[in-house]
């Protein structure tokens, strides 16, 4: 448990010392979201309808951007091998790295999303649902993405390959996440979607660190 907290603190510290990487992904998110009204047109009715989907797709893409550096720097300077050799199980350390990744890339998205939602004329209750859905969904993105990041570690053209591997696996999160807001707006209630999202998260919390660890061990061989 100590090592788990230590690795989160270490990764957060590293992220704070290289703020630009984190901020780049965040501004990418803001810019992509702001491009859609320019491309589609400013009618409020239409914007309100596409807002959940736009915010979610942008969140997926901006998570993709930050995924490639999840293990890459540690792999480059040999830290990852030290982690694998340490007495603490690698799975625990990997889980810590995933938590840190979510805190630096997922959580800021959740906090920013309501502000961007205002640009799309979403009302207050829809914004709450959006925050809930993103709170449940962004950890899922970090967890599933970590498997892809570990598989493409040190591989030629890793960045593009990563998106090819991970984006199809993100589809359920996208459907239920964007669907929750849509269901709420259309009066169906978002409970079912949020429950399914939470179920997926529980499943991923259990399996993803394990699969990521297996993939890391393969790339360290």
């Amino acid at each position: 448990m100590n090592a788990f907290a230590a690795i989160i603190r270490r990764d957060l510290l590293l992220a704070m010392r290289r703020k630009s990487e984190m901020l780049t992904a965040l501004f990418f998110f803001i810019i992509v979201v702001s491009l859609f009204p320019l491309g589609i047109g400013p009618e409020p009715m239409l914007l309100r309808k596409i807002a959940p989907g736009v915010l979610w797709v942008s969140a997926l893409l901006s998570t993709m951007l930050s995924l490639s550096r999840l293990f890459a720097t540690d792999h480059a300077d040999g830290t990852l091998e030290q982690l694998a050799l340490s007495p603490t199980p690698l799975g625990v350390l990997v889980a810590g790295k995933i938590v840190a990744h979510w805190l630096t890339s997922g959580l800021p998205l959740v906090l920013l999303a309501p502000m961007l939602g205002l640009q799309f004329d979403l009302d207050a209750s829809a914004l709450w649902i959006l925050i809930c859905a993103l709170l449940l969904g962004t950890p899922l993105l970090s967890l599933i993405g970590s498997i892809g990041a570990a598989l493409t570690l040190g591989v030629r053209g890793g960045g593009v390959l990563l998106s090819l591997l991970v984006l199809p696996l993100y589809i359920p999160a996208l459907i239920f996440g964007a669907g929750a807001v849509e269901a709420h707006v259309s009066g169906l209630g978002a409970g079912g979607h949020l429950s399914l999202l939470a179920a997926l998260l529980a499943l991923a919390v259990f399996f993803a660190p394990w699969a990521t660890t297996a993939a890391l061990r393969i790339s360290l061989e």
């Binding site: 498997i147 053209g157 390959l161 090819l164 591997l165 699969a211 297996a214 993939a215 393969i218």
Partner: peptide, 29 residues
Amino acid sequence: FLYIGFIALQAAIDDPRRADKAGAILALV
């Protein structure tokens, strides 16, 4: 898309043993 991802991952890794194992994890996921 999943097939294409599997083929692309195997093609990107030069060491065949590593490619097999990485592809196996992807296929199981």
